[in-house]
Computed example of a mutant assay.
Amino acid sequence: MTIVHTLASGSSGNALLLSCGESRILLDAGISCRRITAALRELGLEPGSLSAILITHTHADHISGLQTLLKRCDAPVLATERAGRELAWRLPAVEARLETLDFGGSRSIGECAVTAVPTSHDAPGSCGFRLDTEDGSVGVLTDTGYVTDEAADALLGVDLAVLEANHDVETLCSGPYPYYLKQRILGPQGHLSNADAACFAAALAESGASEIVLAHLSRENNTPAMAQTAVEQALSAAGAAPLLSVAPRDCLGPAHVVCRRSVCKR
């Protein structure tokens, strides 16, 4: 059985766990090691049980807990070549554990095949991931100004998608953020809006996704209700009805069981 849990999801910190057989893969470590450990223990796990740590990019809300976490486990750290260089510069202790992922190439981690896909974000070598197991496939796409062609090619057809719905454009534009920050978020190396997420969610559902989890919502420029409503409307217009939810910001999320649409019994 393949299960995905978000440990935290939002602009203040991100971490996600994929469990498949004996493999435990952590995607990002953007919350404290204490919080990661507490979330793992809720699942009956310890940091030492991690098989690998995947890093999407080097912004603090994705790596802030990594340095301390490395003292609690022996797991290798996998990132793209450019992100890995940046990571090693920021956290020298990572270098001895670092393994490079090539875009488009698949790497086996236990029962899971991991593929990095490029995103468009203002961080060197930023990426999303496709993870394939015998039970089905998972796509993780956050922190991107738009859905790159490579990400669309790789992720269309996944069974479970964890997809950024960072902001409502009107709320962001009328909100208190300074102009430069609004422009960064709205720009091609920023974050996906609810409308962008809705469009890609419909394409994901039409290509086979049986569940979509909305992630990385801004606390100031979005709400779970706004994000979910925007995506629900797009799914309805496309005649699609996958399971849809919003990942909790600051706590362990529910178990998302990965299964192919043809065998899912909801």
Rank of each mutant, 00 (worst) to 15 (best):
A154F: 00
G110H: 06
D153N: 13
C112E: 03
A195R: 10
G190Q: 11
G175R: 02
C173K: 15
T142A: 12
V147Q: 07
K182H: 10
Q67P: 11
S193G: 07
T115M: 10
A198M: 02
T68Y: 14
P92D: 01
T80N: 00
P178D: 02
E111S: 03
T68Q: 15
L163K: 00
L172Q: 11
F129H: 11
G187W: 05
T80Y: 02
I109W: 10
A96Y: 07
D196V: 08
H167M: 07
G136R: 00
S108V: 14
Q183L: 14
S64W: 13
P118T: 11
D196T: 01
P76H: 00
L69Q: 03
R85D: 12
V158K: 12
L69V: 00
G84D: 07
L78D: 09
P124Y: 06
L70E: 06
L91E: 12
T119I: 08
G125E: 05
H62A: 13
G190V: 04
V77I: 09
R97D: 07
Q183E: 15
F103E: 12
P178K: 09
R107G: 12
C173Q: 14
S137R: 10
R85Q: 14
D149M: 13
T144P: 06
V162L: 11
A152R: 04
F103S: 05
A88Q: 01
V117L: 07
A113I: 11
R130L: 10
A165E: 00
L186K: 01
D143Y: 14
L141A: 06
T56C: 10
D143T: 12
T115K: 02
R82E: 15
N166Y: 13
T142R: 01
A75E: 04
L131S: 01
L163E: 06
I63W: 06
A60R: 15
F129K: 07
S120P: 10
G145N: 02
S174V: 14
F129E: 08
Y179L: 15
L101N: 02
S126G: 10
V77G: 05
V140T: 03
R97G: 06
E164H: 03
Y180W: 15
R85H: 13
A75C: 05
